[in-house]
Simulated assay, not measured.
Amino acid sequence: MDQQCRKEWLVSLLGWSGVIVFLSLIDKLHDLWVPEDDKLNNHPLWALQEWGLWLLFTPLLFRLLSQAADKHQLTKRRYLQICALLFINAMWCQALFDLIVLNDSIAYSLLYFAPVHALAIFSCAFIWQRYLALPQTQLVQADNADCQMLTIEQPEGAMQLRFDDIIQINAASNYVEVCTAERTWLKRATLKDIETRLPQQMFLRTHRAHLVNIQHIARVRLKSSGSGYVELKSGRVVALSKAHKHSVKARLQQVA
């Protein structure tokens, strides 16, 4: 099990354990506070019965999303398909559990849990996208798998640069600087637009103004302030911001 899988399981375990403990505590405090006739008198494990299912389904959701992202297949349609698949399976597992253990009807369970399981799916997907997705993972990938080239418009006509030949790309107002070993090319685009056109496994962002080809990185140097810089094999130095240093180190460890 790699580091990403362990992180997904840890987030799931800690997150849902916290939810279950919190709900159980609130339930007990409610019963201590209200008159006897208004007490809920829930089973001590009621929160685990209702939400424990997600201790297993959440890491599965995380893994499916991560695998799709790794293969550059995480389109909006694929995202919705994964969430829908987990939602349907969670609903039926919950309904069967309630039928067998609690003798509740399937129709009642499906009706009762539909909104809460939908909320659970939404929350888990948000947490994955915000905290667990690998750096620069996008819902819509424009990987250019069939054409490993970046088009550069020139007065004499468009030309193609191979991704392998690009060392770094820098933001320059309404343009980007596409740097190769031979020269620097200007292209009218934003760095964010360019980032979606590049293969994720090859390029990473070190700073809000810089994208770097992983193949050309020699080493990373950190400063006491928390920021740092990336030394390239060509001798160039690229800024490394605090916001991106952890993702850069993680990506470099993966390809090492």
Rank of each mutant, 00 (worst) to 15 (best):
Q148P: 09
L32S: 09
P155N: 00
R130C: 03
E231R: 10
G18M: 02
D146Q: 12
L80I: 05
L102H: 15
L56S: 13
C93Y: 08
T58L: 04
V21P: 11
Q136M: 07
E50R: 14
L65D: 02
F203I: 04
Q4D: 10
D165C: 02
A209D: 05
S247T: 09
L25N: 02
L65H: 06
W128P: 00
V176L: 08
A145E: 14
A256K: 13
M91G: 05
S24K: 03
L10P: 08
A171G: 04
F62G: 01
L23V: 12
L161Q: 00
W128G: 01
R251C: 08
H207M: 02
I82R: 01
R188N: 06
D37K: 12
S66E: 09
W51Q: 11
Q154S: 08
K76W: 08
W92C: 13
G235E: 06
D31T: 02
V19L: 12
H244K: 12
Q4L: 01
V34I: 00
A95I: 13
M1E: 10
D193C: 15
W9I: 14
V11F: 07
W51E: 10
L139G: 15
L60R: 03
L222R: 15
L132A: 04
S225L: 12
P35L: 05
L55E: 09
E156K: 13
R197T: 09
Q168F: 01
Y108H: 10
L29E: 05
S123R: 03
D164I: 09
C5R: 13
T184N: 13
Y131N: 10
A125S: 06
L150F: 11
A145H: 15
T184Q: 14
Q160C: 11
H207Y: 11
A172V: 05
Q67I: 09
F126A: 05
R221T: 15
T206F: 09
L139I: 06
R197P: 00
N89I: 04
I217K: 12
S66H: 06
L110P: 04
L65F: 10
E8D: 05
V237S: 13
L86S: 01
A142Q: 14
W46K: 06
F113G: 03
F87R: 04
H117Y: 02
A133R: 01
A218D: 15
E156T: 11
V34D: 01
V230W: 00
L85G: 15
S109C: 01
L23C: 05
V230A: 05
V140G: 09
A142I: 15
T137N: 14
K71L: 00
F22D: 05
I88E: 08
W46P: 03
Q253G: 11
W46E: 14
H246T: 10
R130T: 11
D146S: 11
D165T: 04
